[in-house]
């Protein structure tokens, strides 16, 4: 290997992308060339030093603007795909005829929809796409490092379908594991969106037995009362008599027990 060849491979060497054979060949050259050895060590330190430059973080506005733009684009796309207007429509006689026709078609569609209980395929597809997008945003945000991003994710959960089990799972996970108490509280509130699911009540109850933060415990008790879950009684009874529980939580648990009876 010549020095010129070694120079073009230095960055690969520092990045450990030369491969085993390449690295052996490179090291053999270094062993026989002091100039390259000194350069690899000197410039390599700078190359590695670039790793220490802190990473810039964008503000939360970037995300808000992106989702606004995406929503607007999709609306525009849907509008552009609609059939174009024609000039003769503006004539009163045609308008009258069209109105009558639309009423008839509307009645026909309404009858058809009522008949088979299914919306038209395009509407279903669009609805599904919107639901997917909302789910995606909620799930993505709830996995972010920043607590404010995760809070935004929780607020997006309100826009998800009440039957969306993935979003429900992410909320339950946030209630149980999120390090930030505000995120946990917001996630408890958002669980109300999924109150029709029996999993919600079960998850809230399990979480209550794990929580140690009084404010989150109180929020979970409120939720269980709202869900009118009789299975919550044993846990509430345990809490109301627990000596280690916070006084406010004990009183809240007692209050909940009375409400559930």
């Amino acid at each position: 290997m010549t020095c010129e060849e070694a120079k073009t491979r230095m960055t690969d060497y520092w990045s450990r992308t030369l491969g085993e054979a390449g690295e052996t060949e490179f090291n053999a050259h270094l062993a026989s060339c002091e100039a390259c050895q000194s350069e690899v060590s000197r410039v390599g330190a700078l190359w590695q030093g670039l790793d220490l430059l802190p990473l810039e973080e964008p503000s939360g506005k970037v995300r808000d603007r992106f989702y606004e733009m995406l929503g607007a684009y999709r609306q525009g796309l849907a509008a552009a795909e609609a059939p174009p207007a024609k000039r003769w429509w503006s004539m009163p006689a045609w308008q009258l005829a069209a109105a009558a026709g639309l009423v008839a078609v509307g009645l026909g569609i309404g009858y058809g929809v009522r008949g088979n209980g299914q919306p038209p395929a395009e509407v279903s597809q669009l609805r599904e796409e919107v639901a997917n997008m909302r789910q995606l945003v909620a799930l993505s945000l709830m996995q972010q490092q920043s607590a404010s991003d995760r809070l935004r994710g929780v607020s997006w959960a309100y826009r998800a379908e009440p039957s969306d089990r993935e979003v429900l799972g992410a909320l339950v996970s946030a209630v149980n594991h999120d390090a930030n108490v505000n995120v946990r509280l917001a996630a408890v509130d958002a669980l109300r969106r999924f109150s029709a699911s029996p999993e919600t009540s079960r998850a809230a109850l399990q979480s209550l037995s794990k929580q140690t933060t009084p404010i989150v415990q109180a929020a979970l008790i409120d939720l269980l009362v709202e869900l009118k879950d009789p299975e919550a009684a044993p846990e509430l009874r345990r809490l109301s008599g627990s000596e280690t529980a916070n006084e406010g939580v004990r009183q809240k648990a007692q209050w909940a027990l009375e409400r559930l009876q």
Partner: peptide, 15 residues
């Protein structure tokens, strides 16, 4: 045509 999937790319690459 699934433009909503751009959200995945955004989350991965905007930083």
């Amino acid at each position: 045509g699934k433009v909503a999937r751009l959200a995945v790319l955004f989350e991965r690459y905007h930083r």
